[in-house]
Design a protein around this nucleic acid. Sequence first.
RNA 1: GGAGAGGUCGCAUAGUGGUUUAGUGCACCGGUCUUGAAAACCGGCAGGGUCAAAAGCCCACGAGGGUUCGAAUCCCUCCCUCUCCGCCA
Length: 445
Amino acid sequence: MLDIKFIRDNQDKVKKAITDKKIGLDLDQLLDLDAKRRDLLTELESLQATKNQASKEFPKLSSEDKKVKLLEMKEVDTKTDALKKQVADVLVEYQQLMYLVPNIPSPETPVGADSTGNVPWRYWNTALGVVDPTKDPEKAKEIPSKFEFEIKDHITLGKELDLIDTEAGVKTSGFRGYYLKNEAVLMQYGLIWLALKKMQEKGFSLMIPPILVRDFALYGSGHFPAGRDEIYKIENADKTQEQIYLAGTSEPSLLAYYEGKTLQEKDLPIKVCGVSSCFRSEIGSYGKDTRGVYRIHEFMKVEQVVLCKADIIEGDQWLEAMREIAEGMLQDLKLPYRVLNICTGDMGAGKYKMYDIETWMPSRNDFGETHSDSNLTDWQARRLNIKYKTIDGKIKHVYTLNNTVIASPRILIAILENYQQKDGSIIVPEVLRPYVGKDIIKKQP
RNA sequence: GGAGAGGUCGCAUAGUGGUUUAGUGCACCGGUCUUGAAAACCGGCAGGGUCAAAAGCCCACGAGGGUUCGAAUCCCUCCCUCUCCGCCA
């Protein structure tokens, strides 16, 4: 959500953001409603002032005057009631539109219609380290893993080594269901453990947040109303109960922890790290990535969230800091990856600046998204009413940022495929060996 | 599932129809004093809307309705929290 005053004063910027982000919103309609809202409120306020004044004077009046006053007030009440209804109606509509107004993208964000507009700007692998593709495009092409033999995809590897069973998963859970088995289970928990330890060392407080959430949390994070289809709604036997949802990430709950709070500037930044299951309906992507465990309905994720001062420079610094933490995970795992500057058409409505990190997945012969790093400035904080008091006593909304630390099993695709050997075995990444208890996963004879 | 008690500033509380522009304490911030700190004292310390801004005005005591000239206070509905009992990983 943006400040209505900002919207009024910066209509061109907002309209450009709506166009660039391809949001279905008529800003003029919102501005008309806003004007109407203010007119009605002014009118209502003057009626209320009349009423307040009359009530104060009432006890002092003579009984004759009281009778006259009562009649007058009845008229005021009638008008007030009618006006209140109008205001309420306008406010509902106004609020609905306000929820749709996108954040203004950063000056560094490329304008583009879809994922083809995203700009890769940083590549990495163990051998070459960081490569800047603008300076060294040939070297960037060398980042992906090379194989001297015909590779297998994670589905085949997972089946042969008894690590992933999608057939049984589909039988039990339906389309996109899966079972993780044996070393894959240990790897997933090892990854989560490593991620949590790293985040604690970086000064983040660890949380296991609720993933069953009320709708305010999803409105707050920006997943509602636009992304409603992505979210599972829980069917309650008791229909009178409040509707709850299965969140697709711990971000809504991590943010909702601070909903309605006024923090102190000295307590910022707040750094939290959540671990949770994540649920996504994947409605709207039925035909995409149907094989394996790339696009699935449930997975586990360690997520980092920062609440910082309302300062563009500081926000940018945290976006980079969180990107480095995520890169650190991939570097620990020695997996080749690249970082993309996400363009306007591929970023969410609330985002100011966004990076995706994509990890090399040999069977796709491409990088696949494994991390998503976003700065939402105060867009979420306005929805969630998360403020702080500055040292000189001003009230401002915090900036919020979030990024993946590790998401599994998607990252297992990269691990299994990049670490596969000619004989069909998989070398366990060094950092995971203590958790898996072996150096290599071989086919059982 | 049954019974009860509550929801007022960060926390704790006062407030049972008009003197409430919602009081007090703790915490917090600033100051005086002090070598520094503590203590004491002084001051600040409640959000939202309207407005270019300030003043003013309006709204806000869980939410929504109602009674009343007037509601934190009375009534209704809902939500939430806590306590006890029951059930339960």
